[in-house]
Amino acid sequence: MPNELRHHPILQAIVDQGVLIAFVLLVVFLAFVAPHFVSTANAFSILIDAAPLVLLALCELVVMLVAGIDLAVGAIAGFTGAIAATMMLDGFPWPIATLLALLAAMLAGTLQGVIINYLRVTDFITTLAGLSIFSSLTLIITDGEPMNINANGFNALGEGHLLGVPTQIWIAAFIVVVVALWLGLTASGMHLYAIGGNRVAAYRAGIRVRRLRSFAYAFSGLSAGIAGVILAAQLATADPNAGRGQELPAIAAVVIGGVSLFGGRGSVWGAVLGALILSTILDGLVLLNISPFYTQLVEGVVILLAVMTGHLRKRSSN
């Protein structure tokens, strides 16, 4: 019974108990030891930190399902913020600037997808080059200086509230739901799993493997772009370093959430939980007044623990 459930795209979420239990234990632990941890303000603070990370984790989830990886998501996020900021500075209304910046992000992702799938350059190399190129483009666009953003409508995406909940939490939650429906209910979502499970079988079954894999990278670009918009709006600034290095926590989040690097396994809820665990740990370290020098040390240990317990779980279920 648990095995039958485990791989059902939607129920897999619920069966990812290990991750869920880890998250609950973490919250309970911090509730006891960290001062002011249990409060609405702190919960929002964790979720606000988690919002862009969740979006970047969704990028990695979707490309990893087709056995890929995207190292450029942080760079594309920064690039998107910079494009939106310059366009607003040039007088474009903020909704148009935002949409065009997101389009640029999606094109960036598509370009990577096409290079990987049609020109057959390894995904690791292609997106490593993408990381370099888009980081550099961000520096060129911003001239290396933070760019102020004065459009209130744009900044509301990172500072505003809707029904008392910060806007970026709504945005991230909306994208999470859309991706969960995509992966769980549609043929193309299921085909991502099929490609990751057995690419040859998918091809022989008539699935357009290269096109769908390219689309996964296009989605990754778009979702990274939305993260970039949130990052810029939060600070009302396009920072030339925004998003820099964020591909690593994004990959960490999905790995913690049980997504396989070899394709075909992973769920939206796993990715979201992974991102929440990382954000909560970060928040806890701050509340416990632990030096930020320890942050990445703790993250590294958590990643290893997650992967090792994941192996144990898999072994015990077989």
């Binding site: 039958e4 791989h7 059902h8 299921m190 799993y193 099929a194 990751g196 499970g197 057995n198 040859v200 079988a201 998918a202 022989r204 075909g264 396994r265």
Partner: peptide, 9 residues
Amino acid sequence: DLAVAENLD
């Protein structure tokens, strides 16, 4: 090689 997607039902 019986190409089937091992991760699907």
